[in-house]
Design a protein around this nucleic acid. Structure first.
Length: 146
DNA sequence: GCCAACGTTGGC
DNA sequence: GCCAACGTTGGC
């Protein structure tokens, strides 16, 4: 799951312990959010930063939450085409697990994984939420503590 | 700041 | 339904 650290970083999550992952406004990303279950692990990716990369680990504590910012006309995430009767955007609540001692940079990710294994290394990739195969996730957790 | 990638919008 | 224009993402 991607976030720009100047907007919301792993340090912010560490301080707050948990957060509702608001503001995803892309249908494919939303569908991946909808597919999440309580207890699922998720990597926290810092995008638009230098260097970009995986900054830590978190866990889904509440699946399938309606993203209330879609109804808030003052929010940058407001969606006038959505309605409370039929909300368009759902998300999850996540809890902090750890900030990696050292960020796993995008450069390293590109060296270690193919575009098929880890979508974030795909050129032109703009999805903000994407699945990570279990074997890749396992290796990433090992790399984080190597 | 540039620009490739790509999703969305809206005219037709 | 097509597709050009436009806006956003995000690496570099």
């Amino acid at each position: 799951m991607k976030s720009e650290p100047n907007v919301y970083s792993i340090a912010d999550l560490q301080r707050e312990r948990k957060t509702i992952w608001e503001g995803v406004r892309n249908y494919q990303a939303r569908n991946f959010l909808k597919a999440m279950s309580k207890g699922d692990l998720a990597f926290f990716y810092h995008s638009n930063s230098s260097p970009p990369g995986i900054a830590g680990l978190m866990q889904v504590i509440t699946p399938n939450i309606v993203d209330l910012t879609q109804f808030d006309a003052n929010s940058q995430y407001y969606d006038p085409k959505s309605s409370t009767e039929s909300p368009r955007w759902h998300t999850v609540a996540v809890e902090f697990i750890e900030a990696f001692p050292q960020l796993i940079s995008l450069e390293t990710l590109k060296q270690e994984f193919s575009a098929e294994e880890l979508w974030v290394v795909r050129r032109g990739n703009r999805l903000s939420v994407m699945p990570v195969p279990e074997a890749v996730a396992k290796k990433l957790r090992e790399m984080a503590h190597a």
